[in-house]
Nucleic acid binder design. Structure first.
Lengths: 334, 334
DNA sequence: CTGAAAGCGCTTACAG
DNA sequence: CTGAAAGCGCTTACAG
C-alpha cells in the first residue's frame, strides 16, 4: 500500500506537492501535476482516509439510525436508504448505520458517535410527534437534518425536509373528482399522528374546495394493517352511504380497502376509485395496481445531504416537497 | 473536546497509562485505574476513533452495498440491516453503506473503499447465480463474507452463511401433510435461479419421502408479483387436478395464490393450505395471515459478523441455517 | 506497574 | 510554484 511519501519520492517532489495535486491541483504547474498523477497511477496510490480525517477532523460520514419498525412497517426504507447513500456519495461522503433506543434514551449513542469523531452529523428519520431528538442535538450543537417534521406547536429545532401530505391528499381527491367521483371517503389512523392529521386535513380542504361532502366520510383504523383497512372500509360501506372514492392514509390500508370492495362484488377502479400513500412496492404488484402518492426519494435525499453538509448560516432550512401521484388501475376512470 | 494528553495531565499519569486504562485495564493497579477513570468521566473524554484507526490500521467499519432491487423487491432488507447493525455493534463495529454497480463493474468501488481504509471488509448479499464478486475479492485478499450462495458447480470462494431453502420447503410440505393435505403444488420461478431450484428440490424430495405426488404439480411464474402468482395458481387449478396445498417460493407469489383461491370461492387455510417464504411484513398483515418460512435474521447476522471479524484460519467457513416455519391462518388445519 | 518517545499518513500555515 | 516541518490524537514496543 503506497503512501504519500512514496509517491512524492517517485515523482521527485515533496509530499506537500502530492497532497496539493490531490486536493488543490490548480496550485501546480501543468507538467508537475501530470508527473505527480502518473506516479499516483503507477503506484496505485489511494490516500488513507483515517489520516486525512485525523488531520482535518472531518470524517465525511453521516450517521443514520436504522429504525426498528415498531407499529407500521416501513416498506420504502430500502428506497430511502439507497437514495440517501447515492446523494451522500455525490459529495464524497458515506452513510454510517447504527442502532439506538428510541426517544431520549438513544441520545447518548448519537453523542458518542459524534464525540469519537465517527460521524460528522446525522440524518434523522422516523420522526415522531414531539420527537425529543431534535432539541437535544441542537442543544449539543451536533449537526443534523430531519426527514420529517415533529409536529410541535412551536418552531421545530434544526433544519428539516418533508413531503407535503396535505397537498398529497388534495391531489388524490382532485384526481378522483376528475374521473367523476363525487363521494370520496378518507381512511385514516387515530388522532395521535401529526402525519395522519396533515393528510386528513388535505382531504377535507380539497373536498370543500370542490364542493364535495365530507360529513360521515372519515373512518379511523386502529393500526396499519390490511385487515384493519378492510374492516374500516366495511364499516364505512355498512352505514349505507354511497362511496365512490377512497383516499387511504397508507398503501397497506388501501390494500384492505381493495380487498373489502372485491369481497362485496365491487370492482376497484370501476365502481370505487382508491388511492394509497407512499407508492410502496406493493402498489405496483397488487392487482389492478394501486394509485399512490410517491415520495420524491431522490430529491428528498439530495436536499437532506445538501442541507447537512452545506454551511447552514442563519435560520434553519425547511423544505416541503410535493409528492407525485402515480396513477394505476385502482383509480381508473369509472 | 478532551484528548488523551489532557486526561493524563488531569490524572497525573502518562498518556500510555490512560490508553491502557481504556484498552488493557488489567495492566493498571486498581487505585491508578480508578483515578484515571475518574478523570475520564470528569473530562467526558471519548477517544478519537480516527487517531486510533490510523495507528492500528483497523477502522472497525464493515462495508455493505445497498441493493437497488432490480427484479423482485426485498421486503425483509430492513430486518436484515437492523440485525446486521446490531450484531456489528456487539463487537464495537458499525456498518458503512455504499452503492455500486452490479457484478464486476462494482469491484473498483469495493477496492477503493478498502484501499482508502474506510472499511475493514465487506458483507455481501443479494448474491446472484455465478456472482463474480466473491472470486474478485478473494483474489485481492479483501476480507468478506457472503450472505447467500453463488450456486456454482465448483467450490464457492470465501466464507458464506445461507438459509437452507430445501429444508424450508420440506418443512412446509411436512406441515401441510400433517394437517391432512395430500396434493401439494409448488409455485416457483424460472429455472435460472439457484435459490429457486434449491427450494423446489426440497419440495420434491419431501413429497417423495411422504409418498405424495409431484407430477404436474409445479408451476413457474415469470416474475415475482402478486399478479403472476395468481395467474400461475389459476393455470394450476385449470388443469382440473385437485390441489389442497400450495408451497410458494415467495410471500408475494403466495399472496397471488391466496387471491386466486378467494376469487374462486375457495377458503385459504380451509380448502387449500398455502405457505410462503421469508416471512415478510406482508405475511402478518394479510388475511387470514400467511404461513411463511422465516429466515433467522439475528442468527444470520451474528454468524456473518463472527466469521468476518474472527480469524478465519484454514478452510473457508460455510454455515447453512434452518429457516423457521411461522404458522398462520393460510395453513390452518382443514 | 509506569513513563518517554517514536510513528501511523495525512494537511497546512509558513518560508523561500 | 514548491519544500521543510509541525502536528492531528492515538498505540505500542522498549526501558526503567
Amino acid at each position: 500500500m503506497a503512501t504519500l511519501k512514496q509517491v512524492a519520492a517517485h515523482a521527485e517532489v515533496s509530499v506537500q506537492t502530492v497532497s496539493n495535486a490531490l486536493n488543490a491541483p490548480h496550485r501546480l504547474r501543468a507538467d508537475t501535476l501530470e508527473r505527480v498523477n502518473r506516479s499516483i497511477e503507477l503506484l496505485n496510490y489511494r490516500p488513507n482516509r483515517n489520516a486525512r480525517s485525523l488531520r482535518t477532523s472531518a470524517v465525511e460520514l453521516i450517521g443514520y439510525c436504522v429504525p426498528s419498525w415498531p407499529n407500521h412497517t416501513h416498506l420504502v426504507m430500502d428506497q430511502f436508504l439507497h437514495a440517501l447513500c447515492a446523494a451522500a456519495e455525490r459529495t464524497g461522503r458515506h452513510i454510517l448505520l447504527f442502532t439506538a433506543p428510541g426517544g431520549v434514551d438513544g441520545m447518548p449513542t448519537y453523542d458518542d458517535l459524534h464525540a469519537r469523531r465517527m460521524v460528522d452529523g446525522f440524518v434523522l428519520s422516523q420522526t415522531e410527534t414531539h420527537d425529543p431528538r431534535h432539541g437535544w442535538l441542537k442543544e449539543q450543537d451536533i449537526p443534523f437534518v430531519s426527514f420529517g417534521r415533529v409536529w410541535k406547536q412551536t418552531t421545530q429545532p434544526g433544519p428539516w425536509v418533508d413531503v407535503d401530505g396535505a397537498a398529497g391528499s388534495a391531489m388524490a381527491v382532485r384526481h378522483l373528482h376528475e374521473s367523476g367521483r363525487r363521494r370520496i371517503a378518507f381512511l385514516g389512523w387515530p388522532k395521535l399522528s401529526g402525519l395522519g392529521e396533515d393528510r386528513l386535513g388535505g382531504w377535507r380542504d380539497a373536498c370543500k374546495d370542490l364542493g364535495l361532502p365530507t360529513t360521515g366520510l372519515t373512518v379511523r383504523c386502529r393500526e396499519d394493517s390490511i385487515e384493519e383497512g378492510a374492516r374500516a372500509t366495511a364499516r364505512m360501506l355498512d352505514t349505507g352511504r354511497t362511496v365512490d372514492g377512497i383516499v387511504a392514509l397508507s398503501d397497506i390500508l388501501a390494500l384492505g380497502a381493495l380487498r373489502e370492495l372485491t369481497r362485496r362484488g365491487l370492482t376497484p377502479g370501476h365502481d370505487v376509485g382508491v388511492t394509497g400513500f407512499d407508492d410502496s412496492p406493493l402498489a405496483e404488484v397488487v392487482s389492478p395496481g394501486l394509485t399512490s402518492l410517491r415520495q420524491p426519494m431522490d430529491q428528498i435525499a439530495e436536499e437532506l445531504i445538501t442541507i447537512l453538509t452545506g454551511t447552514v448560516n442563519g435560520s434553519p432550512v425547511e423544505r416541503l416537497l410535493r409528492p407525485e401521484l402515480v396513477i394505476r388501475g385502482s383509480s381508473a376512470p369509472g
